[in-house]
């Protein structure tokens, strides 16, 4: 297969590394206007500025660009190639996403996958296996915290400039946790939300507190934050017969901590002395194959002419509906699209 990568930032490089080792990939080209002098490692791969994009010479396209060009590029890629892998978020907003989804729907044979790799992290796959058939019983509630420290260049990042990104931490990181919620409890509806620009003062939320409910009434709560100061990923599932806590994330820097899954079984006072402190087992994982698996699945779906199994348009639609509703609710309350900072009196 011949693959074309748009955007060679962090995610573009991740996709490139995976594609390079994929047995079905014959050729990779990269389009990034920011690369004016390619390194030796990229020699011959980067399409020189001013040269036409080789649309006719690609079997799959990876859109790894900032959010403000995602929609237009995805739509063009769908028209030209029909097989598109788009990094999250699926556009800056509901309108962007709808345009992408409409373009895909207009091409029945198209394959469109969004990069929700967290579903494929080992702790999440393990949790999913145990919930589905593991005897923990139905899910009673779900709670997720996903946060980062921001960092010295936080304010300068395009991710926090509304005109480019479309939103703040909720759209950037929270989108992953919303996808995971849906993985476990299905489509969600918004109950309430609070967005704040509590520290960084970028005009986009650096904190999102989102309360939701599934179709079966399972409550779900998300805290997405750029003010946790310690990188945090924690997903808690309370089930009828026990609980699961996935935390930490295998990442390049390891800054989210050791990826692990706590498995706890409910115990009542007549079953054990340890009331409120039941038997737990903690599984530690040391290998993240999520990047490889989602690209393999995307390419396999193309090769086999079947729909993809995850990161689908419907998965993305559920997530973007919640985000749309959160922003709409906030705007209705504050009367402005910018997220209020604490001193604005709008909290």
């Amino acid at each position: 297969m011949r693959c074309l990568i748009f955007g060679y930032g962090y995610m573009g490089q991740v996709r490139h590394a995976v594609l390079r080792s994929h047995p079905a990939v014959r050729r990779i080209r990269i389009v990034d206007p920011g690369i004016t002098e390619p390194s030796a490692a990229l020699a011959g791969l980067v399409v020189p500025a001013g040269q036409p994009i080789p649309w006719e010479e690609c079997d799959a396209i990876f859109v790894c660009t900032p959010n403000n060009v995602t929609a237009d590029l995805c739509i063009e890629a769908l028209r030209r190639c029909g097989r598109v892998f788009c990094e999250k978020p699926p556009g800056r907003n509901w309108e962007d996403f709808s345009r992408i989804a409409d373009a895909a729907a207009a091409i029945p044979e198209s394959t469109l996958v969004f990069g929700f790799n967290h579903r494929l992290h080992p702790s999440i796959r393990a949790a999913k296996a145990l919930v589905d058939e593991g005897g923990l019983g139905e899910i009673l509630s779900i709670k997720g915290t996903y946060g980062k420290s921001g960092g010295v260049r936080y304010r300068e990042s395009w991710r926090n400039k509304r005109e480019i990104s479309g939103g703040g931490i909720l759209l950037d990181q929270g989108v992953h946790m919303l996808d995971l919620f849906q993985l476990f409890v299905g489509p969600l509806r918004l109950v309430d939300a609070i967005l704040q620009d509590s520290f960084w003062d970028c005009g986009v939320e650096d904190n999102a507190f989102v309360l939701m409910q599934s179709g079966k009434g399972v409550p779900a709560f998300l805290h997405s934050a750029a003010t946790l100061w310690k990188h945090t990923f924690r997903l808690e599932l309370s089930c009828r017969n026990g609980y699961l806590v996935a935390s930490g994330l295998l990442s390049k820097t390891g800054s989210y901590g050791r990826e692990q899954l706590v498995i706890g079984k409910r115990q009542f006072e007549d079953e054990a002395l340890a009331l409120g402190n039941p038997r737990e087992e903690i599984i530690y994982f040391d290998r993240d194959e999520s990047w490889d698996m989602e690209v393999q699945e995307f390419l396999a779906a193309i090769q086999e002419g079947r729909p993809p199994t995850h990161g689908t348009v419907e998965d993305a639609r559920g997530v973007m509906e919640i985000i749309r509703d959160v922003y709409t609710l906030t705007e209705r309350r504050t009367g402005q699209p910018d997220i209020p900072s604490p001193d604005s009196g709008m909290r």
Partner: peptide
């Protein structure tokens, strides 16, 4: 490869 820890005490 995975590893596991238990908090079961006896």
């Amino acid at each position: 490869m995975r590893s596991a820890e238990t908090k079961q005490m006896f």
